[in-house]
Simulated assay, not measured.
Amino acid sequence: MFDYDLPPLVPHGGNLGDAVRRYGIARERWIDLSTGINPVGYPVPAIAHQAWLRLPDDEDDLETIAALHYGSPRALAMAGTQAAIRVLPEVLPKGPIGVGLLTYGEYAPAFARAGFDVERFVTEPFADRQGQAAFVLEPGHALPENLKHLVLVNPNNPSTERFAPDVVMDWHRQLAARGGTLVVDEAFVEALPELSVASRADEEGLVVLRSIGKFFGLAGARVGFVLASAPIDRAMRRLRGPWTVSGPARIVVRAALLDTAWQTETRARLAAASKRLAEMLGAYGLDASHTPLFAWARQPNAQQWQDCLARQGIWVRRFETVAGLRVGLPAFDEATWSRLEAALRNVRSETDGR
Protein backbone atom coordinates (compact mmCIF):
# COMPACT_ATOMS: atom_id res chain seq x y z
CA MET A 1 0.00 0.00 0.00
CA PHE A 2 1.44 3.37 -1.00
CA ASP A 3 1.73 6.12 1.60
CA TYR A 4 1.30 9.29 -0.41
CA ASP A 5 1.95 12.60 1.31
CA LEU A 6 -0.95 14.42 -0.30
CA PRO A 7 -1.83 18.07 0.37
CA PRO A 8 -5.19 18.80 2.04
CA LEU A 9 -8.19 19.38 -0.18
CA VAL A 10 -9.15 22.96 -0.88
CA PRO A 11 -12.60 23.75 0.58
CA HIS A 12 -15.28 24.84 -1.87
CA GLY A 13 -18.96 25.63 -1.92
CA GLY A 14 -21.39 22.95 -3.00
CA ASN A 15 -20.38 20.78 -0.04
CA LEU A 16 -23.97 20.23 1.00
CA GLY A 17 -23.18 16.72 2.21
CA ASP A 18 -21.11 18.24 5.01
CA ALA A 19 -24.06 20.34 6.11
CA VAL A 20 -26.42 17.34 6.01
CA ARG A 21 -24.10 15.36 8.28
CA ARG A 22 -23.38 18.22 10.68
CA TYR A 23 -26.93 19.45 11.16
CA GLY A 24 -28.98 16.30 10.62
CA ILE A 25 -31.34 17.94 8.13
CA ALA A 26 -32.38 15.86 5.12
CA ARG A 27 -30.77 16.96 1.86
CA GLU A 28 -34.08 17.78 0.16
CA ARG A 29 -34.94 20.32 2.87
CA TRP A 30 -31.89 22.52 2.27
CA ILE A 31 -31.57 25.71 0.25
CA ASP A 32 -27.98 25.52 -0.98
CA LEU A 33 -26.59 29.04 -1.52
CA SER A 34 -22.96 28.03 -1.05
CA THR A 35 -21.98 28.38 -4.72
CA GLY A 36 -22.17 31.12 -7.34
CA ILE A 37 -24.00 28.93 -9.85
CA ASN A 38 -27.09 30.19 -11.67
CA PRO A 39 -29.97 28.38 -9.93
CA VAL A 40 -32.00 28.38 -13.15
CA GLY A 41 -29.49 27.02 -15.62
CA TYR A 42 -29.67 26.52 -19.35
CA PRO A 43 -32.48 24.12 -20.34
CA VAL A 44 -30.67 21.00 -21.45
CA PRO A 45 -31.82 19.78 -24.87
CA ALA A 46 -32.61 16.17 -25.66
CA ILE A 47 -29.46 14.14 -26.29
CA ALA A 48 -29.50 11.38 -28.88
CA HIS A 49 -28.68 7.91 -27.59
CA GLN A 50 -25.77 7.64 -30.01
CA ALA A 51 -23.94 10.41 -28.12
CA TRP A 52 -23.51 7.98 -25.21
CA LEU A 53 -22.14 5.23 -27.45
CA ARG A 54 -19.44 7.17 -29.30
CA LEU A 55 -16.18 8.63 -28.07
CA PRO A 56 -16.31 12.43 -27.88
CA ASP A 57 -15.52 14.13 -31.17
CA ASP A 58 -12.66 16.52 -30.40
CA GLU A 59 -12.83 17.72 -34.01
CA ASP A 60 -16.43 18.95 -33.90
CA ASP A 61 -17.24 22.66 -34.06
CA LEU A 62 -17.50 23.27 -30.28
CA GLU A 63 -14.19 25.11 -29.99
CA THR A 64 -14.93 27.22 -33.07
CA ILE A 65 -18.31 28.20 -31.61
CA ALA A 66 -16.69 29.01 -28.27
CA ALA A 67 -14.02 31.19 -29.92
CA LEU A 68 -16.72 33.13 -31.77
CA HIS A 69 -18.78 33.50 -28.61
CA TYR A 70 -15.82 34.88 -26.65
CA GLY A 71 -14.45 36.94 -29.52
CA SER A 72 -11.15 35.11 -29.33
CA PRO A 73 -9.02 33.66 -32.17
CA ARG A 74 -9.11 30.20 -30.61
CA ALA A 75 -10.53 28.25 -27.68
CA LEU A 76 -9.36 25.07 -25.98
CA ALA A 77 -12.07 22.97 -24.34
CA MET A 78 -11.17 21.51 -20.95
CA ALA A 79 -12.99 19.48 -18.31
CA GLY A 80 -13.80 22.68 -16.45
CA THR A 81 -11.40 25.50 -15.69
CA GLN A 82 -10.26 23.43 -12.74
CA ALA A 83 -8.50 21.12 -15.20
CA ALA A 84 -6.86 24.12 -16.84
CA ILE A 85 -5.55 25.35 -13.49
CA ARG A 86 -3.79 22.01 -12.99
CA VAL A 87 -2.18 22.19 -16.45
CA LEU A 88 -1.15 25.85 -16.53
CA PRO A 89 1.93 25.47 -14.29
CA GLU A 90 3.31 22.98 -16.80
CA VAL A 91 3.34 25.50 -19.66
CA LEU A 92 4.53 28.67 -17.92
CA PRO A 93 8.19 29.40 -17.14
CA LYS A 94 9.07 29.19 -13.47
CA GLY A 95 9.06 32.44 -11.55
CA PRO A 96 7.25 34.26 -8.74
CA ILE A 97 3.50 34.36 -9.30
CA GLY A 98 1.03 36.67 -7.59
CA VAL A 99 -2.21 35.13 -6.31
CA GLY A 100 -4.84 36.98 -4.29
CA LEU A 101 -5.06 36.33 -0.57
CA LEU A 102 -8.84 36.16 -0.89
CA THR A 103 -9.66 34.51 -4.21
CA TYR A 104 -10.40 31.13 -5.77
CA GLY A 105 -8.48 28.66 -3.65
CA GLU A 106 -7.07 26.25 -6.24
CA TYR A 107 -4.48 28.56 -7.82
CA ALA A 108 -2.00 28.89 -4.99
CA PRO A 109 -1.63 25.15 -4.27
CA ALA A 110 -1.49 24.25 -7.99
CA PHE A 111 1.43 26.58 -8.65
CA ALA A 112 3.14 25.82 -5.34
CA ARG A 113 3.08 22.08 -6.12
CA ALA A 114 4.77 22.83 -9.45
CA GLY A 115 7.61 24.71 -7.76
CA PHE A 116 6.51 28.30 -8.30
CA ASP A 117 7.14 30.89 -5.61
CA VAL A 118 3.58 32.01 -4.79
CA GLU A 119 3.30 35.58 -3.52
CA ARG A 120 -0.06 36.53 -2.07
CA PHE A 121 -1.46 39.99 -2.69
CA VAL A 122 -4.33 42.05 -1.35
CA THR A 123 -6.33 44.77 -3.05
CA GLU A 124 -7.27 48.15 -1.60
CA PRO A 125 -10.49 47.00 0.16
CA PHE A 126 -8.37 44.58 2.21
CA ALA A 127 -5.47 46.89 2.97
CA ASP A 128 -5.91 46.06 6.65
CA ARG A 129 -4.63 42.55 5.79
CA GLN A 130 -1.50 43.87 4.11
CA GLY A 131 0.64 42.20 6.77
CA GLN A 132 -0.48 38.79 5.44
CA ALA A 133 0.52 39.59 1.86
CA ALA A 134 3.64 40.26 -0.18
CA PHE A 135 2.20 43.28 -1.98
CA VAL A 136 -0.88 45.39 -2.65
CA LEU A 137 -2.33 45.17 -6.16
CA GLU A 138 -3.41 48.66 -7.18
CA PRO A 139 -4.71 49.92 -10.53
CA GLY A 140 -2.27 52.25 -12.23
CA HIS A 141 0.66 51.19 -10.05
CA ALA A 142 3.73 49.20 -11.00
CA LEU A 143 3.80 45.52 -10.14
CA PRO A 144 6.66 44.26 -7.94
CA GLU A 145 9.82 44.07 -10.03
CA ASN A 146 10.45 40.42 -9.15
CA LEU A 147 6.98 39.25 -10.18
CA LYS A 148 6.90 37.00 -13.26
CA HIS A 149 3.21 36.06 -13.43
CA LEU A 150 -0.08 37.19 -11.95
CA VAL A 151 -3.44 35.45 -11.48
CA LEU A 152 -6.42 37.80 -11.56
CA VAL A 153 -9.99 36.61 -11.00
CA ASN A 154 -12.35 39.16 -12.55
CA PRO A 155 -14.85 39.70 -11.03
CA ASN A 156 -13.17 38.29 -7.98
CA ASN A 157 -14.56 35.27 -6.18
CA PRO A 158 -15.66 35.78 -3.42
CA SER A 159 -15.09 39.51 -2.84
CA THR A 160 -16.89 40.71 -6.03
CA GLU A 161 -14.16 43.24 -6.97
CA ARG A 162 -14.20 44.26 -10.62
CA PHE A 163 -11.25 45.37 -12.71
CA ALA A 164 -11.75 47.45 -15.88
CA PRO A 165 -10.17 46.05 -19.08
CA ASP A 166 -7.70 48.94 -19.37
CA VAL A 167 -6.46 48.23 -15.84
CA VAL A 168 -6.14 44.52 -16.59
CA MET A 169 -4.24 45.14 -19.81
CA ASP A 170 -1.86 47.54 -18.06
CA TRP A 171 -0.86 44.73 -15.72
CA HIS A 172 -0.53 42.45 -18.75
CA ARG A 173 1.74 44.96 -20.46
CA GLN A 174 4.03 45.10 -17.43
CA LEU A 175 4.30 41.32 -17.19
CA ALA A 176 4.71 40.71 -20.93
CA ALA A 177 7.61 43.16 -21.02
CA ARG A 178 9.49 40.91 -18.60
CA GLY A 179 8.51 37.65 -20.33
CA GLY A 180 5.75 36.89 -17.86
CA THR A 181 2.08 36.00 -18.06
CA LEU A 182 -1.20 37.39 -16.81
CA VAL A 183 -3.79 34.68 -16.14
CA VAL A 184 -7.29 36.17 -16.07
CA ASP A 185 -9.97 33.91 -14.63
CA GLU A 186 -13.28 35.13 -16.04
CA ALA A 187 -15.43 32.38 -14.53
CA PHE A 188 -18.08 34.92 -13.46
CA VAL A 189 -17.75 37.46 -16.27
CA GLU A 190 -20.41 36.04 -18.59
CA ALA A 191 -23.02 38.23 -16.91
CA LEU A 192 -20.67 41.25 -17.09
CA PRO A 193 -19.23 40.99 -20.61
CA GLU A 194 -17.93 44.56 -20.55
CA LEU A 195 -15.17 43.41 -18.16
CA SER A 196 -13.81 40.69 -20.43
CA VAL A 197 -10.42 40.79 -22.13
CA ALA A 198 -11.10 37.60 -24.09
CA SER A 199 -10.77 39.45 -27.40
CA ARG A 200 -7.12 40.19 -26.52
CA ALA A 201 -6.25 36.58 -25.68
CA ASP A 202 -4.05 36.14 -28.74
CA GLU A 203 -1.49 38.52 -27.26
CA GLU A 204 1.66 36.93 -25.88
CA GLY A 205 1.64 36.67 -22.11
CA LEU A 206 -2.15 36.62 -21.67
CA VAL A 207 -4.24 33.58 -20.77
CA VAL A 208 -8.01 33.89 -20.22
CA LEU A 209 -10.09 31.16 -18.59
CA ARG A 210 -13.85 30.95 -19.17
CA SER A 211 -16.37 28.73 -17.41
CA ILE A 212 -19.64 27.20 -18.54
CA GLY A 213 -20.69 26.18 -15.05
CA LYS A 214 -21.59 29.50 -13.43
CA PHE A 215 -23.67 31.73 -15.72
CA PHE A 216 -25.09 28.85 -17.76
CA GLY A 217 -25.78 26.78 -14.64
CA LEU A 218 -24.06 23.76 -16.19
CA ALA A 219 -21.49 23.02 -13.51
CA GLY A 220 -22.18 19.30 -13.76
CA ALA A 221 -21.12 19.25 -17.41
CA ARG A 222 -17.53 20.14 -16.33
CA VAL A 223 -16.63 22.31 -19.31
CA GLY A 224 -14.41 25.36 -19.49
CA PHE A 225 -12.26 27.03 -22.13
CA VAL A 226 -8.71 28.33 -22.29
CA LEU A 227 -8.20 31.34 -24.55
CA ALA A 228 -4.52 31.95 -25.26
CA SER A 229 -1.87 32.51 -27.90
CA ALA A 230 -1.09 29.69 -30.32
CA PRO A 231 2.04 28.41 -28.51
CA ILE A 232 0.25 28.09 -25.15
CA ASP A 233 -2.81 26.59 -26.83
CA ARG A 234 -0.64 23.93 -28.50
CA ALA A 235 1.20 23.11 -25.28
CA MET A 236 -1.99 22.79 -23.22
CA ARG A 237 -3.68 20.79 -25.97
CA ARG A 238 -0.89 18.20 -25.84
CA LEU A 239 -1.10 17.98 -22.06
CA ARG A 240 -4.90 17.84 -22.06
CA GLY A 241 -5.00 14.66 -24.11
CA PRO A 242 -8.00 13.27 -26.01
CA TRP A 243 -11.69 13.05 -25.03
CA THR A 244 -11.45 15.31 -22.00
CA VAL A 245 -14.97 16.71 -22.54
CA SER A 246 -17.73 14.13 -22.89
CA GLY A 247 -19.87 13.89 -26.00
CA PRO A 248 -23.17 14.73 -24.24
CA ALA A 249 -21.55 17.71 -22.52
CA ARG A 250 -20.28 19.01 -25.88
CA ILE A 251 -23.82 18.89 -27.27
CA VAL A 252 -25.30 20.80 -24.34
CA VAL A 253 -22.57 23.46 -24.22
CA ARG A 254 -22.75 23.99 -27.98
CA ALA A 255 -26.48 24.71 -27.70
CA ALA A 256 -25.96 27.06 -24.74
CA LEU A 257 -23.27 29.10 -26.47
CA LEU A 258 -25.43 29.55 -29.57
CA ASP A 259 -28.57 30.60 -27.68
CA THR A 260 -28.02 34.36 -27.54
CA ALA A 261 -31.66 35.10 -26.70
CA TRP A 262 -31.44 32.99 -23.54
CA GLN A 263 -28.16 34.68 -22.62
CA THR A 264 -29.64 38.18 -22.95
CA GLU A 265 -32.71 37.30 -20.89
CA THR A 266 -30.58 35.61 -18.25
CA ARG A 267 -28.24 38.57 -17.82
CA ALA A 268 -31.22 40.81 -17.04
CA ARG A 269 -32.74 38.27 -14.67
CA LEU A 270 -29.50 37.71 -12.75
CA ALA A 271 -28.82 41.45 -12.42
CA ALA A 272 -32.24 42.03 -10.85
CA ALA A 273 -32.00 39.00 -8.56
CA SER A 274 -28.52 39.81 -7.27
CA LYS A 275 -29.51 43.41 -6.51
CA ARG A 276 -32.49 42.10 -4.56
CA LEU A 277 -30.26 39.66 -2.69
CA ALA A 278 -27.74 42.35 -1.68
CA GLU A 279 -30.54 44.63 -0.49
CA MET A 280 -32.10 41.82 1.54
CA LEU A 281 -28.79 40.96 3.18
CA GLY A 282 -28.22 44.63 3.97
CA ALA A 283 -31.63 44.95 5.58
CA TYR A 284 -30.65 42.30 8.13
CA GLY A 285 -27.16 43.51 8.97
CA LEU A 286 -24.92 42.10 6.27
CA ASP A 287 -23.32 44.93 4.28
CA ALA A 288 -23.03 43.13 0.97
CA SER A 289 -21.46 43.84 -2.40
CA HIS A 290 -22.56 41.68 -5.30
CA THR A 291 -21.98 40.35 -8.77
CA PRO A 292 -24.91 39.05 -10.85
CA LEU A 293 -24.33 35.55 -9.42
CA PHE A 294 -23.52 35.99 -5.72
CA ALA A 295 -23.15 38.46 -2.88
CA TRP A 296 -20.26 38.92 -0.47
CA ALA A 297 -20.42 40.34 3.04
CA ARG A 298 -17.38 40.86 5.21
CA GLN A 299 -18.55 39.79 8.65
CA PRO A 300 -16.41 39.29 11.80
CA ASN A 301 -18.87 36.76 13.23
CA ALA A 302 -19.30 34.90 9.93
CA GLN A 303 -19.16 31.52 11.68
CA GLN A 304 -22.15 32.41 13.85
CA TRP A 305 -24.11 33.62 10.83
CA GLN A 306 -23.33 30.45 8.89
CA ASP A 307 -24.33 28.26 11.82
CA CYS A 308 -27.58 30.12 12.49
CA LEU A 309 -28.61 29.91 8.86
CA ALA A 310 -27.62 26.24 8.65
CA ARG A 311 -29.84 25.35 11.59
CA GLN A 312 -32.69 26.66 9.43
CA GLY A 313 -31.63 24.62 6.41
CA ILE A 314 -29.85 27.36 4.48
CA TRP A 315 -26.23 26.70 3.52
CA VAL A 316 -23.86 29.55 2.69
CA ARG A 317 -20.09 29.64 2.18
CA ARG A 318 -17.93 30.97 5.00
CA PHE A 319 -14.40 32.30 4.48
CA GLU A 320 -11.76 32.50 7.18
CA THR A 321 -8.76 34.24 5.56
CA VAL A 322 -10.91 37.36 5.61
CA ALA A 323 -13.95 36.64 7.74
CA GLY A 324 -17.02 36.83 5.57
CA LEU A 325 -19.87 35.07 3.81
CA ARG A 326 -20.59 34.39 0.15
CA VAL A 327 -24.27 33.94 -0.58
CA GLY A 328 -25.44 32.59 -3.92
CA LEU A 329 -28.74 33.36 -5.59
CA PRO A 330 -31.87 31.54 -4.41
CA ALA A 331 -34.05 29.84 -6.97
CA PHE A 332 -36.31 32.34 -8.71
CA ASP A 333 -39.48 31.58 -6.79
CA GLU A 334 -41.06 33.68 -4.05
CA ALA A 335 -41.32 30.80 -1.56
CA THR A 336 -37.52 30.41 -1.54
CA TRP A 337 -36.95 34.16 -1.20
CA SER A 338 -39.46 34.31 1.68
CA ARG A 339 -37.77 31.44 3.46
CA LEU A 340 -34.37 33.12 3.11
CA GLU A 341 -35.70 36.42 4.44
CA ALA A 342 -37.32 34.72 7.44
CA ALA A 343 -34.05 32.94 8.22
CA LEU A 344 -32.08 36.20 7.99
CA ARG A 345 -34.56 37.86 10.32
CA ASN A 346 -34.09 35.06 12.84
CA VAL A 347 -30.31 35.28 12.61
CA ARG A 348 -30.37 39.03 13.11
CA SER A 349 -32.52 38.60 16.22
CA GLU A 350 -30.22 35.91 17.55
CA THR A 351 -26.99 37.82 16.89
CA ASP A 352 -28.49 40.97 18.41
CA GLY A 353 -29.40 38.98 21.51
CA ARG A 354 -33.11 39.70 21.23
Rank of each mutant, 00 (worst) to 15 (best):
Y4G: 06
Y4R: 13
D5Y: 02
D5F: 10
L6F: 08
P8G: 09
P8Y: 05
P8I: 06
P11H: 08
G13K: 00
G13E: 05
G13Y: 00
G13C: 00
G14H: 00
G14Y: 00
L16K: 02
G17A: 07
G17T: 03
D18A: 11
D18V: 13
A19M: 15
V20A: 08
V20M: 08
R21K: 09
R22F: 02
R22K: 07
G24D: 14
A26G: 08
A26P: 09
R27P: 09
E28L: 09
E28S: 12
I31W: 06
I31G: 15
D32L: 09
L33G: 06
L33R: 01
I37F: 06
I37A: 12
N38V: 09
N38C: 13
N38F: 08
V40H: 12
G41C: 06
G41P: 05
G41E: 03
Y42H: 06
Y42W: 05
V44R: 13
V44Y: 01
P45Y: 01
A46M: 11
A48W: 03
A48I: 10
A48T: 08
H49I: 09
H49V: 13
H49R: 14
H49P: 10
Q50I: 10
W52L: 12
W52D: 15
W52K: 14
L53V: 07
R54G: 10
R54I: 14
L55D: 06
P56S: 04
P56E: 01
P56Y: 02
P56H: 00
P56T: 00
D57C: 15
D57R: 11
D57T: 05
E59Y: 04
D61L: 13
L62K: 01
T64W: 05
T64S: 07
T64P: 04
T64A: 13
I65S: 15
I65K: 12
A67I: 01
A67V: 02
L68P: 08
Y70P: 02
G71P: 07
S72E: 15
S72G: 13
S72Q: 11
P73W: 02
R74H: 06
R74V: 09
R74P: 08
A75K: 08
A75W: 01
L76T: 04
A77R: 11
A77D: 07
A77C: 15
M78W: 00
A79V: 05
G80T: 00
G80N: 05
T81K: 11
Q82W: 08
Q82A: 12
A83E: 11
A83M: 12
I85D: 07
I85E: 07
I85V: 15
R86N: 12
R86E: 11
V87L: 15
